[in-house]
Design a protein around this nucleic acid. Structure first.
Lengths: 366, 366
DNA sequence: CTGAAAGCGCTTACAG
DNA sequence: CTGAAAGCGCTTACAG
C-alpha cells in the first residue's frame, strides 16, 4: 500500500498557491484570528503576563486551528535562548566506541525531557567547535564527554558566556560541573570484594596505556586505588594494560592468565577485555567462578548487549549523561542565582552481580 | 598543573564590567571599525555583492580584531536557513544498538564537512519530533535512520517544507531520497559465493522475527533473495531467525548447527549472531573455514571493534549516512532546481574477505 | 561600488 | 487587563 507521496499535480497551473505545509503562520496570524494584538497573543502563550481567560482561550483556539508553532530563530533572537545544547563527543581510536552511545543517549534523552534539543558534535577539533557554537550563540550550553586530565576544551569553555557540564573528571575541575564514576572507590571495591571472599592474588587489566597518556585519568585512578588497597590488605595485584581491540586484547588476556597461574581473580577496567574474555576462558578451559572470579567495569547496557556473564561495576553512562545535562539546564535557567557552587559528583560504584564472583578453590587452575 | 580557572576576582568590585567573552560583537561593530555601513560589511562577508578590495580587507581585518561571529538566530531569521539538519535516529529493543553509532557518525561528519550541524533526535515519538522541528523552522532538512517498510514518519515528512533523505528502503520510496545497502543482491551474493566454492547446504541466520514484523524489510529482502537463489542453484538453505542478544542468539546458533550437521556454510544477517559465533564455534570445536564457511553482513567498524574473524558484506553504515546527508544538502541548497528526480540508491554489496570462506571439506563436522 | 531602510518573527518594556 | 512600538542582529531589495 503506497504511502502519501508529495506530488502537487493539482497546483501545476497555479504557481502562486503555496505548497501544502508551506504557509508560514506567524503570531500575527494568530493575533488576527483571535482578534487581539500580537503582544497579547504572545503573552497568552508564554504566560508572562496575566491574560483574561476568555481572551486566552481565543488565542489558544487560534493556535490550534492554524497549527501555529513559534519560529525558533525569531524566538532565539529576541530571547537570547535557543533551547539547544551542544554535546561535544570524542571518538578516540584507542577507546571502545560502542560504549559512547550510552552517554550520548543519556544526554539527548535527558535534554529532551527538559525541553532542549541536542546538537551532536563529533568533529575532531573540539576546541574549534566549542568556539564556533559559543560565539555564534547557537546553543545555550555545552556538555563535554570523555573529558581528559588536561582537556584543552576547558580553557575555552571557561571563557564562554554559556555554561558547561562534563562527564569525566579533569585535573582541575574548578569552575565546572563535573560528573563521573568514582574510579578510586571502584578500584578499592573490586579488591575489597575479592579479598573478603579469600582471594589473595589478582590480575588487573586496564585500558591501553595510550589512553592514560592522552589524559584518561580514570585508568590510573582505578589502578592506583586498587594497588594501594591490595597493598594494605596484603593481596598480590598484577596490574597491566591491555589492548582496546581484539585480537590484541585476547592475546593479552591469554598471556596474563598463563603468566600468573595462581591468580584467582581477574579485574577488568577495559570493555574490550570483557568482550574478549568468554572466548579466552573457553579456549583455556577455565570456568567462572569456579576456577576464576571475574569483576569488570562497564555499562549495564553493554553487558546486556553482549550478554557478558561477569559481575561488574556499572559505569552508569546513561545516568552520568542525564545528570550532566540536568545540572547544565539548571545553570542555564537559573541565571546567576541558582546552583552557585560548581559541583563535582562522583557516583559511588555498585557491583551488578552476574554470578562471576565466588570464594577461590584451593586447586590451582590450568 | 592546574588548568585555567574561570574566577574573576579582579572584577569583583566592578559588576558593570562584562565578563570575558560576554561582549556581544555585532556586524554594526564591525562596520563601525571598518568605517563602512552595515550592509557593506555584510556584503563583504557573504560575498553576495562585489566590494572593492580595499574596503573588503578593512572589513575582514575588523572581523579578525573584534572576533566577530554572526549570530546564528539572527541569520536564520533573515535568511530562512539554519545550517542545521535533524538526524532522526531510532533505537529499538530488538536491534543491535552499537551498530547505529556508525550511521550517526557518518551523518554528523558528513554534515559538518558541508557546513551543517546536526541535531540528534532520539526521542521515541519520531513523528512528533519531526513535526515540532519542521514547523518551528529549527532545521533545514531531515535525515531519517532505520526507516521501515511502512514508516509513519514519511507521511509527515512528505508534507513538510524541508526536504528529507533516509537510510533504509521504505515500501513506497516515491518522493524521497533513499539510500540503503542492496539487500537483495546481498542475499544472492552470499549464496553465489558459497555455491561457487562447492557448498550445497547452507544455514541463514536473520535478525529476530520482530524486526521483520515491525517493518524491517531488509531482513526478508535478503532472506528471500537468498532462498530464491539457492532454489535456482539447487542449494539447500535453512533459513531462520535468531535472537538479537546473547544468550538467546548463542543458543540459537548451537541449535541450528546441531540440527543441520551436514551444512557447510553459515550466512549471518544478524550482528549479535556474528558477535556470539566465536564462542559457539569454540565450544563445538568447529574450526573456520575448515569445518564451516561463514559469511556475515555487518559494518567493517563493527568487525574491527570485535575483531570478528568472518568475511562479511560491509553494511557501509558510514558511507550510507554520508550519502544521505550529501543528497539532503544538495536538495536544501539547490532549491527547486538541482536534484529534481528523487533517487533510490542501493549500494552493491561487497564482501570483505577475512578468510572464513573456503571450499567445503568432504568429511562432515561434529 | 556603496548606503539608508525595510523586514524576517518573535518578545518585552512602555503606556494606557 | 490590553495595545502600539521598539528591538534582537542579521540580510537584501531599493536607490543612488
Amino acid at each position: 500500500m503506497p504511502l502519501v507521496s508529495n506530488r502537487y499535480d493539482s497546483n501545476r497551473f497555479d504557481s502562486d498557491v503555496a505548497e501544502e505545509g508551506d504557509e508560514v503562520v506567524t503570531i500575527g496570524d494568530v493575533a488576527k484570528a483571535a482578534g487581539v494584538s500580537r503582544s497579547t497573543a504572545s503573552y497568552a502563550l508564554t504566560g508572562k503576563r496575566s491574560i483574561s481567560p476568555a481572551v486566552k482561550q481565543r488565542v489558544i483556539d487560534a493556535v490550534q486551528e492554524l497549527g501555529y508553532v513559534p519560529n525558533a530563530g525569531a524566538r532565539a533572537l529576541s530571547t537570547s535562548q535557543t533551547k539547544v545544547i551542544a554535546l561535544l563527543a570524542r571518538f578516540l581510536d584507542d577507546e571502545f566506541a560502542p560504549a559512547m552511545l550510552q552517554y550520548i543517549l543519556g544526554v539527548t534523552n535527558g535534554a529532551r525531557e527538559l525541553g532542549y534539543d541536542t546538537l551532536l558534535v563529533s568533529e575532531e577539533d573540539g576546541v574549534h567547535a566549542l568556539q564556533r557554537l559559543s560565539s555564534s550563540r547557537q546553543v545555550d550550553g555545552f556538555v563535554l564527554l570523555n573529558v581528559s586530565e588536561e582537556d584543552e576544551r576547558l580553557a575555552v569553555l571557561g571563557k564562554a558566556p554559556q555554561p558547561g557540564a562534563m562527564v569525566g573528571l579533569p585535573g582541575d575541575p574548578d569552575g565546572f560541573d563535573v560528573f563521573d564514576l568514582d574510579f578510586v572507590a571502584s578500584g578499592r571495591l573490586m579488591v575489597d570484594t575479592l579479598h573478603e571472599l579469600g582471594h589473595r592474588e589478582l590480575i588487573l587489566v586496564s585500558q591501553p596505556e595510550d589512553v592514560v597518556e592522552r589524559g584518561g585519568a580514570y585508568v590510573w585512578r582505578l589502578a592506583n586505588a586498587a594497588r594501594e588497597r591490595a597493598a594494605e590488605l596484603g593481596v598480590t595485584l598484577h596490574s597491566s594494560f591491555g589492548a582496546s581491540q581484539q585480537p590484541g586484547i585476547g592475546d593479552d588476556l591469554k598471556r596474563l592468565l598463563d603468566a600468573h597461574p595462581s591468580a584467582t581473580g581477574l579485574l577488568l577496567n577495559n570493555e574490550a577485555a570483557a568482550a574478549a574474555l568468554p572466548s579466552v576462558l573457553l579456549a583455556r578451559g577455565i570456568s567462572v567462578p569456579v576456577d576464576l572470579s571475574v569483576v569488570g567495569r562497564y555499562s549495564d547496557d553493554f553487558a546486556k548487549t553482549f550478554s557478558l556473564p561477569f559481575s561488574a561495576i556499572d559505569s552508569a553512562a546513561d545516568e552520568l549523561g542525564r545528570r550532566a545535562v540536568r545540572q547544565l539546564v539548571a545553570r542555564i535557567e537559573g541565571g546567576d542565582e541558582a546552583p552557585a557552587p560548581h559541583t563535582v559528583e562522583l557516583i559511588p560504584p555498585v557491583i551488578h552481580d552476574r554470578g562471576s564472583i565466588a570464594a577461590p578453590t584451593k586447586a590451582p587452575r590450568g
